[in-house]
Structures are given as C-alpha cells and as structure tokens.
Write a protein that binds this DNA or RNA. Sequence first.
RNA 1: GGAUAUGUAGCUCAGUUGGUUAGAGCGCACCGUUCACAUCGGUGAGGUCACAGGUUCGAAUCCUGUCAUGUCCACCA
Length: 880
Amino acid sequence: MIIMTKELAKNFDSKEAELRLYQLWEAGGFFNPDNLDLPENTPSYTIILPPPNITDKLHIGHAATLAIEDLFVRFYRMSGFRTLWIPGTDHAAIATQTAVEKKIKREENLTRQQLGKPEFLKRVDVFVKETQAVILNQVRQLGSSLDWSRLAFTLDAPRQTAVKELFVRMHEAGLLYRGERIVNWCPRCQSTLADDEVEHQEQQAKFYTFRYASDFPIVIATTRPETKLGDTAVAVNPKDKRYSQYIGQEFTVDFCGQVLKIKIIGDRHVDMAFGTGALGVTPAHSAIDWQMAEANHLPIIKVIDEQGKIHDGFGRFSGLSALEAREMVVEDLKNNNLLVSEEDISNNLSVCYRCDTPIEPLPSLQWFMSVDTPVAHLGGKSLKAKALEAVESGELEFLPARFQKKYQDWVINLKDWCVSRQIWFGHSIPAWYKGTEVYVGRTAPVGDGWVADQDTLDTWFSSGMWTFSTLGWPDTFAGGVKSGDLLRFHPTQVLETGYELITLWISRMVILSYFAVGELPFTKTYLHGMVLDVYGKKMSKSKGNGIDPLIVGETYGMDAVRLSLLSGITAGNDSKYHEEKTAVARNFVNKLWNVSRFILTQAPEPLVVNKAELTLADAWILSRLESVKISVTDSLTKYEFSAAAEDLRVFTWDELADWYLESTKFMSGQSTPAVLRYVLLEILKLWHPFIPFVTEELWQATGEGGYLIVVPWPKANQDYLSTEAEKDFAILKSVVVAIRTVRSENKLDPTKKLPAIIYTKQTELFESVKVLLKSLRTGVDDITIAKTGEAPADALYCQTAEAEIYLPVTVDKTEEIARLTKNEQEVKAFIDRLEKQLANAEFVNNAPTTVVNKERNRLVEFKDKQTALAQALAKLKNLL
RNA sequence: GGAUAUGUAGCUCAGUUGGUUAGAGCGCACCGUUCACAUCGGUGAGGUCACAGGUUCGAAUCCUGUCAUGUCCACCA
C-alpha cells in the first residue's frame, strides 16, 4: 500500500476547503441514515431542525442553533446511532405576509388589497422561493449535516395534506369548533392574533374619570372613553361599601347622545383601590368584560369594527376612527360637566408583534381548538391534561430543568386556542359554509351554494405538527399504527431550540403529537439562550446590530464561527457575541492545523504503538488522552458541550502542543511517532463535531482512508490509563516551570546557560528526564541530581513538592533587597490593619461564632505573614 | 403585580452534588522568533466571588434579606 500524504499549507484555507468538503459528504450520502449500512436494531437519534422563517436570511442566532444541533448529530452519528436531522423552512404566515406587504408598499406603493388575492399570493410565492434559496444555502455553508432528501416546507403539498387531515380529525373528535369570542384584532393585518402574538408597549395615556350622566350615581374611569358607547353594566366589588347598595339596580342614561342601559353588577375581580373602584363594562371590547357579560347575561354592543372605526348606529360618532371618537366623547363630557378629572398615567398598550399596530379586542367568529374536551383515544383525557401529564410523569424533560415550571405554568393557564387567521398566506381551513350550515372535510362538499372558508390557519398549527408531518404522517400512521419513517424516527430524541419558543411552539407540538400519533414528539428539550450583541442587547433588523455569520465566516472560517458559538455558553443562558471570540476560535483552528502538520511530518504513515517502548512523555500523553476521551464523551452525553470543548482545548493546546510536542523534540522513543499519530487521529475524531471542516481535511491528509464524518467515535483504551505516568510527568512539569519562573523573576538573560543542582528523593525519575529538564526552555545545562546536599553559597533557589533546585549564579543584590523591603512593608501594613480590625471587633459581638471563626482565619494568615516576615528579614540580613 | 435568571479579574465567561492556594480566554507588563504555528512561545501583575446576615469543622456554591441588571407572563378597567 502506498500512502500519499499531501503537503499541508502553513495555514488552513477554509474558504477553499469548505464547499469542497461539504460536497464530498453530501455525495457520499452520509447525511441520510438510509445510506449507511446499519444493523436493523440500531437505535435512532432524530432531531428536527426548528424550521427558520423564510422572512429573512439567517443571523448569528440561527448559526448557533445549527452549530449546536450539528454537534449533537455528528456526535451521535459517529457513536453509531441511526442519526437523522431533518431540514425545513417555515412559511411563517403572518410574518411573511407582512414582509411582502411592506416590500410591495415600498417598491410599488401598492397595498395587498389593491393587488388582489391571486396576484398577491403570486408575489409571496416569488419572495418565498428567493429567500428560501438564500437560507438553505446559508445552512449548507455552515456545514450542517442535514438529510436533504427529507427537506420539508411547512406549506408544501405533503404538509398541506397533513394539516388538512389533522384539522378534519380534530373536528371529528369535537376539538375544533367555531364561535364568537373576544379576539385580539390587528386592524392593519386585518387578522386575529393569538395571545402570545400580542406584545405590550409602555406608553403615556390619559386616564379619564367621569360620569355617564349627571343622574348616574357612580363615577368610573377609563383610558378609552369611546368604547363606553358600548357599556352595558358597571361592575363593582361586592365588598365595596361605597357601591354595594346599587348592585342589581338598572339605570338608563344618556351618554353623549346615546341611550345606554346600565346594570350594576358585583364582581370580585374588581380592584377597589384602582381608579374609582367601579368599572364600566364594555363586553364587546375587553376580554374580562366579555366574561362578566357572559356570567351576568348582559347584552353585547359592538362599538368598533374591524377597520378600527365606530360602527353604524352611533350617530355622529359612526365612521370615525377610535381616536377621533375618543376626542369627541371627552369634549362632550367636558361640555356637560361630567368629566371629574383627567390625569396622565403610563400604561401598557397592546400591539401586534409583527407590525406594532395597536390591537383592538373585539368579538369575532373564529375557529378554536378546545384544550379541555376529553379525547377518546387519549384515555378520555383532554389535550391540556396530556400536556401536563407529560412533564409531571417525567417523560418530557427540560434542560435546563427550570424551564419545566415555565411550561407547566403556561399549560395550566391555557385557554382554547384561536387557530384561524384572516390573512391570505397560509394553510386554508378545510371548511365550507352554506347559510348556517358548516361542512368540514378533506374535499369540498357536493351540491351548490357552498362557500369555502376564506381564512387561513395560525402558522403554529403547521409547525406544531413538524415532528410527524416531516415523517410521512398520515400515510405512515395508517390504521393507527406507525410504519416507515414514523416508526423508525418518532418520537425524536431531543428538541433543540430557544427558550422563547416553549409556549409558542413546544407546547403546541406536544399537544398535536399526542392527538395525531398518541405519543410525545420528543422526550428531551435542550433550550439555548439568545445570542446578544456586544452590549447585551437583542439583535434585530431595525436596530441594525445583527451579524451575518457568513460574513464573519469569510474572514475566520466556518469552523471558527461554529466553535466560537459553542464555547463558553451554558444551557438557557444568553450570551454576548464579540467578533474577537471568533478570532480566538480561528487561532485554535490554526493551532490544531499546525499540530497536525508537525505530527504528520514525524509520522506520515500508520504505525503501531508498542507499550513496552514508551517514554515517560509518551505514557503521559496517552494516559491524558484516554482521560480526555472519557470526560468529553461524558460531557457530550449530558449536553454539556462547552465543557467538552474546554477540556479538549486544554488537552490539545496546553498538554499536547506545549508539553508533549515540545518534549518529543528532545526525547523521542521507538514508539513516539506511533503515539504522535495515534493521539492526532483520536483528537481529530473528538474535535470533529465542533469543527467538522478542518478535522475532515486533516483526516484526509493522514491517509487513513474513509471519511471522518462516519468514523466510529473513540472509545477509551483503559490499557493506556496510567496514574503513575501522569504523576511523574507532573513532577517534571513543576520543576521545569519552577526553573523558568525563578529565572524570569530574576531577569536572567534567557540565553545564558546555568548549571543546576537538584535535591530530590526521586533521583531515578529525574535522571531519566534529565534531557528534558535541560531542554524545555529552562536554560539549564550540567544538572547534578542528588538525594540531599548543601545549599551553594550564591544561587537562585526554587522548590517544588518533590525537589529543591539551586541555580548557582551571582545576582545583583540591590534588586533583591528592594523586593524584600517591599515584602517587609506589606507585612507591617497588614499587621496594622489586623490590629485595627481586632480593636473594632466588639460591635459585632452579637455573632460570636462568626467573629471567632473569622479571627481564627485571620490569625492563621497572620501567622503566615509573620513567618514570611521573619524569612524576609533573615534573608535581608544575609544580603547586607 | 407574579415568575425566572444573572451579578466571579479591565472585558467575555467557566466553576459538575459545599472541601487544598477561586480558573480560562482576551486585554495588559516584561522577555523571546531560522528549528509545526507571531493566527506563536515563556513569565508575571490583576479577585472583599454585588452587599448584609444565617447554617456548617468548612460557603463563590446552601438558606434569608437588600441592591443592581435582564427576560417572560399578567394587569392596568
């Protein structure tokens, strides 16, 4: 066999290598587990890529997600699992529609209504294809080992079929119903929003305190006087003595020219201390008021319409915007002397999370998913009950564990989910209407006069199905039995995503998977923190503080980008991103490259380690390698990848490069080249999940054959573990460091060679590493080793736990004296401080134990200082 | 208002169930470069582990409180 080792360049050319290597892996079919010849009983390891929204290209946060997941996937693939990582993108209904609307407005100054639905959807389609291509290309460039043969889109044909099917089945099970409820309405998007799609912005508002009419007994307060046109009651706390006498009474008032019938009701939710302690109930425009209205059978009067304008039937107010109407109402109140006060308060304004338009709560006919209805095939339990059971039974695990509480709190308060949206882009709802008749089915009903539902589904409906809709459901679940991909890969092993998606996404996946497949979508969730900018602020397009991972990658290489995003982070905690981090990671990649380059010149061909021929350094590095394998594998299994990277970095840079490689330059045994090569091959494997490109490139250079991406994960060789070797080498290191330090402290000329006298009990060990003691930048030659002996007259002295070292040399004593004098002064200052503290100690006498403990500690320190002082003085005398 | 997290070196962060002298990287100071790597090597300085109590033989770590910062949820009628 002839092994050709490529001559390696001085630095890794990441730009040249990345695309070539990715194509190599893809052509090799390694991303698709079906191509790997795995035994039938091989356990699966499945991850779904959280499908990025196709609204925009990827940012550094996405890169972090991809780096983390690719790390998991590569680790498990090498560990022999049937590993599948499914790629996809999310149509992000409302977000995409908004993005395209803005684009059309900007470029053509047209609204979607002006374009019309068919034309608008065509534009969306073009937009989707463009951004999708950009995103998927970015994902590839980061080296993500995704199985592209299973690429999915939340709105492609298979997903449309699946969504339709699930909707029909849930409707049949009585879980989907249509009803009029107060919804969050965005007048700009012209659509409902889920509760968690509503954001709150602090703002200054006017808080008006007033009476409906002069003959009305109760004063109420509001920030939105215009909605009071629809009031049907005033609610007070039943315990409130000011108002309890009125409860049950009904008043007819003339409010700004509108006749209102106001009933006084008692409700314990009313806060007596807020405002006037009385609340005008507007059932149509407040969720809480709606509930009160239902409880008290109050009529509902709609004031504001879907455009944010006042409905017909309100006289001069009709047709005005809410704000215009508000001003007029206030004016009216003032004129009629009904306004008691007007004060500035700060309150939270609810706005649309996509367009920041203030949302308008109003009643609307929508589709809802019931979370409380018992489901027959789930043992009569509701979706909510199952979602809770998942964590209470411990079946669904959160990492970090604290997020379990967040999930639970949210599920406990879960209300029926409004799944319909009045936007154009998205999954259509498989429902048809004829008069009051409603038909839900896979295809349109036969007969004339049926009108298809014009709404679309909440985007989380389709992303909630992601674990099984990407695995062939419903076809792979015929007859309620899993088959094919679904059988092999579901439930997935871990869901890796940001903690902000616990409620929006994770909970929905749990619910929908239970209903559709009868099992959890995954058993573990790993939640990463957000990548923030240098100042700890969220990155966003509007702030312009976003970072494009590919641009950083151009400069430093994708391996460096990945490694910098994987280092120094912990689960669930945000991290700040500095470009310097990537530069540091690039330096490491360069170090690994050069370590490899050096080793491959020493050992260009496969060699066999012979344990009988090992030098101390050989035995030491082998033992350290095996320990590192164990700790790294353990950390990765526990998803503690930053710790694993840190262990590997220390091993590679400090132990391998700085100590072992240096030592082999001066002391090489028969097996040293074999050891060098073995260590290199093993660390390439260990590093591969973190920095796949450079490690694969180096693997190819070793001539070992095959592809690192599918090389088996290293197992620890217990035979190489040696506490003896680790201990002995540690002794050597400590002596070398001690000599270097004492020379540096005394500012000796580094090129000046000195003799050394070493007194140690371990003479044999020291004799055997004499050459290293001389060579490893100690500037020492002619070493005398003895068990005991006299201290030379003029010599630098240092010691370690195992040895006393003298370097005979004449040094300039003035510097030494200065240092000792400084030491003396420090000790004196300390004694002064201590005396003061002891003098003032009385006032803390109420905590005697602590004082005693503290004083004890201080005395120990004091004793040490005194010893140091005595030594310093003794030396000072000698010098003088 | 509720929940949750964070506070460790100038900066970014580790610190695994409480256990020797609290660590790393960057930055800084000094020294060094023909010999794998200046994207490098060596040495060093730099810490009241936010603050105050408590538990313990022993606390960065556990408990209580205070302060500061961040995030999420709810509400503001």
